[in-house]
Simulated scan of single mutants.
Amino acid sequence: MPRLARLAILDDYQGVTLRLGPWERLAHLDITVFRDTLADQDALAERLAPFDAILAMRERTPFPRGLIERLPELRLLITTGERNRGIDAAACAERGVVFCGTPSFGAPTVDLTWGLILGLARRIPEEQASLRAGAWQQGLGVGLEGRTLGLLGLGKLGRRVAKVGQAFGMQVIAWSQNLTAEAAAAVGVERVEKRELFARADVLSIHLILSERSRGLVGAAELAAMKPTAFLVNTSRGPIVDQAALIAALQEGRLAGAGIDVYDIEPLPPGHPLLSAPRTLLTPHLGYVTEENYRAYFAGAVEAIEAYEAGAPIRVITG
């Protein structure tokens, strides 16, 4: 295949992509880095029209069919990570666009999940704020030992989160639509029914892929089943939880707190109702944002470009 000419790197919020990848291997390529996200499809199509290669950072910018069909020069579309449900793979194939992914490093979302759980349970943000304001020991946290960790999803990440919970001395229960009692027991977890999961959990952590089956899966009824002393943590995808129902539960004191890393709209706009919701610990979608993971992403992106130009694309995503 002929060499690529122009690469657009999208949504580099922190301005670190060129520093963390071996881009010097692509000296022939004209690389443009965009640090902002364009939601307007007309403006986005105009911006990306000149590029024959694009690197998308996770799902920050979706690529539906309508956008892909407006990019006549596009030949290679890379997503960081092994999959991206925001990119229409079928449209890429029909347009002759090679769509491929990159490796990742470890399971950094597990770290952040436990950071949110511990921050909520031990009131770390509140106690730090009061200490800096000159106060001392303003509230009581809760310990995790002997409490119940409920996992909505027991896949790769869910199992890693379960191991940490077990190390803290927690009882771990789980439910998902495809989870069997045997699969749960194999990792020391009790498989329960959906309502029981929400009713028993002292900490409920979500580890599902966003799909039509999981969208809105945690709604008003599920939140109403939870203990008023329980915490909800979502490091998966925002639309899995009914945002309005969650805010209402927090405002009415029906949940002890929520740790949220993912949102219906990203970046989260100023004035978003979650920003003023009580008893929340909010982070800006940091689950995958580590230096090690970024280095794996960008090294993989360079490899993908080299492989494409050599006529042997790698890590091609077809669906």
Rank of each mutant, 00 (worst) to 15 (best):
P2D: 13
P2F: 01
D11S: 15
Q14M: 15
G21Q: 04
G21K: 00
W23T: 02
L26D: 08
L44W: 02
A45Q: 06
A45D: 04
D52V: 12
E59C: 08
E59T: 09
P62I: 02
L71C: 08
P72R: 06
P72T: 11
P72M: 08
R75L: 08
L77S: 07
T79A: 07
T80H: 05
G81M: 04
A91H: 09
G96Q: 11
T102W: 01
W114K: 01
L116M: 08
I117C: 01
R122Y: 14
L131R: 13
W136R: 14
G141P: 04
L144Q: 10
G146E: 11
T148E: 12
T148V: 15
G150T: 04
L154A: 11
G155Q: 06
G158R: 00
V161P: 02
Q166W: 07
A174M: 03
N178S: 15
T180D: 07
A183C: 02
V187W: 01
R195Y: 11
L197E: 06
R200G: 04
I209W: 10
G219T: 08
L223H: 09
L223E: 03
M226I: 04
M226C: 10
P228D: 04
T229W: 02
V233I: 14
S236I: 05
G238F: 10
I240R: 06
V241H: 00
A248V: 10
A256S: 10
A256P: 09
A256R: 13
G257I: 02
G257S: 11
E266A: 05
L268P: 03
H272N: 08
L274D: 05
T290D: 03
N293L: 03
A296T: 05
A299D: 14
I305S: 09
